[in-house]
Computed example of a mutant assay.
Amino acid sequence: MIRALALLVCLWPATLFAQDATALARDAGAQLQEAAAQLEEADSARDRVKALTATIKAYEAGLAAMRDGLRRASLRETQLTRQLAARDSEIAGFLGTLQTIGSTPSPTSFLHPDGPTGTARAGMLLAELTPALNARASTLRRDLEDVKNLRAIQTQATAQMQKGLTEVQTARTALSKALAERTDLPRRFTEDPVNTAILIESSETLDAFASGVSNIAQNEQSISLPDLAARIGDLPLPAQGIVLRGANEADAAGIRRPGILLGTRPGALVTSPTAATVRYQGPLLDLGQVVILEPQPDTLFILAGLGAVYVETGEVVATDAPIGLMGGLSAGSATTEMSQEGEGAGTARSETLYIEVRQDNVPQDPASWFRQGKDG
């Protein structure tokens, strides 16, 4: 029995998960504080658009880390609570044993009916049992303390996260205003609205539209953009999120598309992966709001599913320049943004950005162009 008890003590859950959640929440809090400092400095920045873009990205990274910490803390608290609830009767018996031992008035209570030999054996048994009981009591105290700490972490982190969500929305509003006031963005060509309307009306597929998109340009000027060859495979994704569906994977309706589907949070910032010309922006086919970027001749990045668009057709944008925001922001969106449910599967990311890459109007696998690391 003593061996079984000792084994149970060894198998009792450790506090590493709780410590991990604490560290994540602490680091995320530091990220959000840094983002808040950036937001304060953005007003006086020489390039407010660039400063606010970096601020929003910092908030998004900090909020993603905070959600991860909250999710881990919640999972660990639930696990510990269930374990403790399942052991209620066991713990009651265990505490009763400790109380019996603790209330013993004197060593004479342990005199054995078999005499000195029996008493010695009983003493040895108790000496072997007591450390195991003490270890078990220590583990129980630690687990109860972990539950208390995890709840405190979640309360504090939730407050920080709510504040961060308010501040990132402030940064989004400031960015929209700064972009509206911007007048220095270079323009490569002027859009021909008649040709654009004809192309949209006559195009039944993305292939058809992409093949004729250059025809909507008027007074186009030659322009030199950075060579993209060395960066293929290492381009950042346009928005923070996780890949929900790869190229040519069937969706729920059995439809296959050559691009990837990125799950994002409501209001996620969409930026240009590299310097590029905006070949088109606006609604297109069944893809919603679309932005088509041309980073080099005969290469197109098609981004579809945006909620708001900041760029105009014909403009030239820099690397990491804001393109727009994902949709989904509303009066009740704060609850959605606070949620950690479904994080692992991406179901908490209610918005989707479709990303397609084309060379000479032939679709390429975006996975070979963009780095797809761990999200937040």
Results as ranks from 00 to 15, higher is better:
Ala6Leu: 09
Val9Ile: 08
Gln19Ser: 10
Ala21His: 02
Ala23Lys: 15
Ala23Ser: 13
Leu24Gln: 08
Ala25Pro: 04
Ala28Lys: 00
Gly29Pro: 07
Leu32Lys: 04
Glu34Gln: 14
Glu40Val: 15
Glu41Met: 09
Glu41His: 13
Ser44Glu: 10
Arg46Ile: 09
Arg48Ser: 10
Val49Asn: 00
Ala51Gly: 03
Ala54Ser: 13
Ala58Asp: 02
Glu60Pro: 01
Leu63Cys: 06
Leu63Thr: 10
Met66Thr: 06
Arg71Ile: 03
Glu77Met: 06
Arg82Cys: 04
Gln83Gly: 13
Leu84Ser: 07
Ile91Tyr: 02
Ile91Val: 15
Leu95Thr: 13
Gly96Asn: 11
Gln99Asp: 10
Pro105Val: 13
Pro105Trp: 02
Ser109Pro: 00
Leu111Arg: 13
His112Val: 12
Pro113Ala: 04
Gly115Asn: 06
Pro116Gln: 09
Thr117Gln: 15
Gly118Lys: 07
Gly118Cys: 07
Arg121Cys: 05
Ala122His: 08
Gly123Thr: 12
Ala127Arg: 14
Glu128Phe: 11
Ala132Leu: 09
Asn134Ser: 13
Ala135Tyr: 00
Leu144Phe: 09
Val147Thr: 10
Asn149Glu: 01
Arg151Lys: 15
Ala159Cys: 01
Ala159Trp: 06
Gly164Cys: 02
Gly164Asn: 01
Gly164Lys: 03
Gln169Phe: 04
Thr173Pro: 11
Lys177Ile: 11
Leu179Glu: 02
Glu181Leu: 12
Arg182Cys: 08
Asp184Leu: 05
Asn195Met: 12
Ser203Gly: 00
Ser203Phe: 01
Thr205Leu: 05
Leu206Cys: 07
Ala208Tyr: 00
Ser211Tyr: 04
Ser222Arg: 15
Leu225Pro: 01
Leu225Thr: 02
Ala229Tyr: 07
Arg231Asp: 12
Gly233Glu: 02
Gly233Phe: 01
Asp234Met: 08
Pro236Asp: 06
Leu237Lys: 05
Ala239Asn: 06
Gln240Leu: 12
Gly241Tyr: 01
Glu249His: 14
Arg257Glu: 11
Gly259Cys: 01
Leu262Pro: 08
Arg265Asn: 14
Arg265Glu: 14
Val278Leu: 00
Arg279Ser: 11
Pro283Trp: 08
Leu284Glu: 01
Asp286Ala: 11
Val290Pro: 02
Val290Gln: 01
Val291Phe: 00
Gln296Lys: 14
Pro297Gly: 03
Asp298Ser: 14
Asp298Trp: 07
Leu300Glu: 14
Phe301Ala: 06
Tyr310Gly: 06
Thr313Gly: 03
Gly314Ser: 09
Glu315Arg: 13
Asp320Lys: 09
Asp320Trp: 03
Pro322Phe: 03
Leu329Tyr: 00
Gln340Ile: 12
Gly344Glu: 10
Gly346Asp: 03
Gly346Thr: 01
Glu351Gly: 00
Tyr354Arg: 06
Tyr354Val: 05
Ile355Asp: 05
Glu356His: 07
Gln359Asp: 07
Val362Lys: 08
Trp369Thr: 01
Gly373Glu: 03
Asp375Cys: 11
